[in-house]
Simulated assay, not measured.
Amino acid sequence: MASNQETTAIAEKESKDGATQDFGDNPIEVRETDHYQEEYVHGFVDKWDELIDWDARAQSEGQFFIDMLKARGKKTVLDVACGTGFHSVQLLKAGFDVTSVDGSAEMVTKAFENARKRGLVLKTAHADWRWLNRDIHGKFDAIICLGNSFTHLFKESDRRRALAEFYAALKHDGVLILDQRNYDAILDVGFDSKHKYYYCGDQVTAEPEHMDNSLARFRYTFPDGSVYHLNMFPLRRAYMRNLMKEVGFQKVNTYGDFQETFDDHDPDFLVHIADKTYIEEK
């Protein structure tokens, strides 16, 4: 049996190797934007694609994002939450000029590797959304912020600043596509994910361990028994739509699980499409 000293040494080594997360003594008190850097440790990032299941996700969402961008005549896309590269790769294969960014250096590295394995080269950068235009130069036709990533911002000031940075990085007629979990449903009714559209890996469980009006703590359990967590802010649909408009976006359309019409508490995920200029419906 290992001594306490040996056990501590092993735990410290695992942490340094990126195998473990550190939420302190009381995990539900961790409600800080910057903590996401410590949550996406190497071990978690390395397993992330098990959760997504690229093939199943590609089939479930189809051409939704590609069609939305092509319908608006967009060509240059900034993927500000590229994660392990799923959407960047799909858009690159569809002919878009893609720049891939993430706040996690581990994710950026994984995205580049995933693209390379598929014979593609991603233009990648490591950047914090709150200072996006300091590190990313130029104007883009579209920005995508997918994978429920925006909910890592706990302060309203951070959310407003990030949206303002997105707005500034877009051309005058640019579009922002941002998604989130349907937190209204989770808070008001309870969690009941269909695992059909986003997190399609059928061997991984992703479910809330704690929920209140300012924290959604999710637990991710993998087939090998490893467990990871993410602490996120539960954005309500109306709040998010209003925030986009207050920052300057002229029109916001929201889809539920890629459908234009839906019952409020039915979809697992919501997709907001925010245009800088008002576009009349045809």
Rank of each mutant, 00 (worst) to 15 (best):
E39S: 12
R134S: 13
W48C: 08
V175M: 12
D192V: 13
K16T: 11
K251A: 00
K110M: 14
N231E: 06
F64E: 02
N182I: 06
S149Q: 06
H272R: 10
E106V: 05
H272C: 10
E165P: 08
E38N: 11
D263T: 15
I10N: 03
L146K: 03
G119V: 10
Y220D: 06
K196L: 14
D268K: 12
V189W: 05
I10K: 08
I28N: 11
E39K: 05
L122Q: 08
G24V: 06
A238H: 11
K155Q: 13
D179R: 04
Q59E: 15
D266A: 15
E39P: 07
V98W: 06
Y220H: 13
R130Y: 06
L122M: 11
A58S: 09
Q59L: 13
V101I: 14
Y255K: 06
R159M: 12
D275G: 01
T76D: 02
D224P: 11
I144T: 03
V189Q: 14
H126F: 13
V98N: 05
W48L: 14
T8H: 10
F191V: 01
V98C: 06
E61P: 07
D34R: 12
D46F: 04
N4F: 13
G73E: 02
Q250S: 14
D158C: 08
V247A: 02
E260C: 15
V30M: 04
E207C: 08
E260A: 15
M1E: 12
L69P: 01
F269V: 01
L69K: 02
L69G: 01
A9E: 12
S3Q: 02
M68V: 01
R181H: 04
Q180C: 08
Q250K: 15
Y199R: 07
I28P: 00
I136S: 00
M240L: 13
G248A: 04
L163F: 13
K282F: 10
D34P: 01
I28C: 02
H172K: 10
D53Y: 11
F86Y: 15
N213C: 01
L170K: 06
D179M: 05
M244A: 08
N133A: 05
D202M: 15
D46E: 13
Q63E: 12
I28K: 10
A168P: 00
D55W: 03
R241L: 10
A216Q: 09
R31K: 15
H137N: 15
V101H: 09
K74N: 02
L153W: 10
I186S: 09
K75P: 03
F249K: 00
V30L: 05
L176Q: 05
V271K: 02
K139C: 13
I10G: 00
H272T: 11
D25F: 09
Y239G: 08
F96L: 02
N114L: 14
H265Q: 14
E50A: 00
Q90G: 02
E260W: 13
G248F: 02
A115F: 11
H152E: 01
P27R: 04
I136G: 00
I52W: 00
T124Y: 03
S3M: 00
L92Q: 07
L178Q: 05
L176D: 05
A94N: 06
N133G: 07
D263H: 14
A111H: 09
